[in-house]
Structure formats: structure tokens, C-alpha cells
Simulated scan of single mutants.
Amino acid sequence: MDPFGNPAVSVVIPTHTERRWASLTRTVRSAQSQTYPAVEVVVVVDHNPAMATRVRAEFPGVTVLENAYTRGASGNRNTGAFHTRTPLIAFLDDDTVAATTWLRGLITPFRDDRVVGAGGGIIPAWEGSHPRWWPDELLWAVGVSYTGMPTSTAPIRNVWSASMIVRRDAFLAVGGFRTGFGKLGDQNRPEDTELCLRMSAVNGGHWMYVPSAVIDHEVPRSRSTFRFLMARCYHEGRGKVQMAGLLPKEQKLGAEADYLKRTLPRAVARNLLHATMGRGGFHALRAVTVVAAVLAAAWGGGVETIVGLLDTGATVPSTPAV
């Protein structure tokens, strides 16, 4: 603890490819420049021994580990987290830059013993410009905060591992991130959401969102296209069905239901209104994009449901004759 009684924190940064070397450098430097300094900064390299050697050589003062589990961010993060000994463990992705006050903001909710974890605001750092047709309600698709999230510090069901801090004892109690379940290749399984739900369930604790504890998250041009957004929504639909299959039956995905019933319909109505009032044709494109995103996610969810039924040997109900 510091002189004011705040708990010590370690920062874990997973990485996997030297193609992100420049962004990894920025991430590490931002972790080392916090006004509330971390006891230890840990970089974990995902099955890339040559890169691990380079990180050790070029980042003095940083602990460098190699993923002790199967390939993927979940095992990478667990390797670093299980190594730490501080009461709090923070996570940053290797394509983010944390504001100097990021850690200081994230530790604030832990004055409440019931808080098991917290997350901060994530701002998009577009390589190009923000596509005007892209609704802010769908910014989650590039891993940043979106319209519909709280605008001040508030309880939240889950946060994202790009900007996350956890109580070490609660994290260890559930075994950390679920290895083999996460983002790998074209799979977009929500390993951070799944972790948050398990940590909340273990002792009735809750998560807090601190939008003022900000990081910038890089968004390359390749992720600024309509094609990427539709693919992301499709795989998110598949991932949510997979996650639901891991949860107890009584633990429903209420946040997703509220998002679909409230946030997205409001986005469609607002943008159509703005379009009819002559405030720019891009508003009509935003409304169409929201509808397309819902359909893409529904398609992905349907595909995953069928795949799950086939894998378990169940039969898919036949279509009734008309």
C-alpha cells in the first residue's frame, strides 16, 4: 500500500507479434509513466521466443514472461497475473496508451470491499478518420467505449480486458480467464465478459466503470470498413451463444437484451429523424448500419446454435410444412 492506504498494483500486458512493436513500446511507456506507479510491469509473449528475447533486451525494468498455456490472450494474461503478488492486477492490451492518471482512477472504486474489478473509458485512436457512417452505439466492435455506457463512475456488469483491474484474490478464486476461450484468429469469444460474470458470481461482488480513467485504443484502417464491422458482429453473435452455454441457466444475458431493446432502436430512430431533418445523409447510413449489425449478429448466433446442436448430437427442428 502507498502512504494513503491504497493497494499496490501490477500491470500485465499480453503481446504476440513484432508487427505491434511500435504500439507495444507506447503501451509499456504509458504503464511506466503512471502518477500512481505500478509495483511491476509484466509483458507476456504468446509463443514467440524470438520476440520474448527482444523484449527482455529492450525493456529494462520490465518483467518478461512467455505464455505457459495454450496460444491466445487468455493464457497470456493468466501467465502474467498468476506471477504477480500485488492485491490488485491491471491489464492493458499492447495496442493501447494509458493516460498518466489511468491507474489512479481505476483504484478508486476498491475502497468498497464489494468491488471485485473495474474498467476505464476507452477512446478510439483511428489510423484514419472516424467513418461518418459508423454509429457510436457500435464502437464496441473496435474495442472502445460506446454510446449507451455510463458517463460517470457507476456499477456495470462487465468491462473489457484492454483496460481492466481486478482483485487478485477474486481473480484467483475463479481460476482467471478461461483458457482456450477468447479471441484467436477469426474467433471473437468474449473472454473478458465471461470472466466478469464468474467473478461477480463467486461472492456476489460487482464491477465498476470509471470513464475518466482513460486509455487510447488504436484502430487500424483495416478495422474501419463496413466489411470488418459486419464480420465482427457475426463473430460476436457466435461468441455470445458460446458464452451463454458456459453460464448457469439462471444467469441470463440481460445487458445484451437491454442493448438490443433500448439502445439500438433509439439509435435507429434518432438517426432517421436527423436524416429526415436534413442534418446529413450519413445519418441514414448509420440507421441502416445498426440494422445490418443486428442481422449479422443474429446470423452468427443462429449458426453457432446449429453448430452446437450438431456437436451434441441433438436434432435441429425441421421447418414446419406450409
Rank of each mutant, 00 (worst) to 15 (best):
I123L: 15
R167Y: 02
A162R: 05
M164Q: 13
A170Y: 07
Y146Q: 10
A118H: 08
A170C: 12
L138I: 09
A170P: 06
W134F: 15
W140Y: 15
G143W: 12
V142E: 00
G128E: 13
I122K: 14
P124H: 09
A173Y: 05
E137V: 12
E127Y: 11
A154D: 12
V159P: 02
W160L: 14
L139P: 00
V116C: 09
W134Y: 14
M164R: 11
G119I: 07
P131R: 00
G119V: 07
G119W: 03
R168E: 04
V142K: 01
R157W: 05
H130I: 04
I165K: 06
L138F: 06
T147K: 11
S145H: 01
P155D: 02
P131S: 06
G117Q: 08
S163L: 03
T147V: 10
G121D: 08
T147S: 14
N158E: 13
W140I: 10
V174Q: 03
D169H: 02
W126N: 06
S163H: 10
L172M: 08
G120W: 07
P131C: 07
G128H: 09
V159G: 05
I122F: 04
I156K: 03
G148F: 03
S161C: 12
A162T: 14
A118R: 04
D136E: 15
P150D: 11
A162E: 09
P124E: 01
A170K: 03
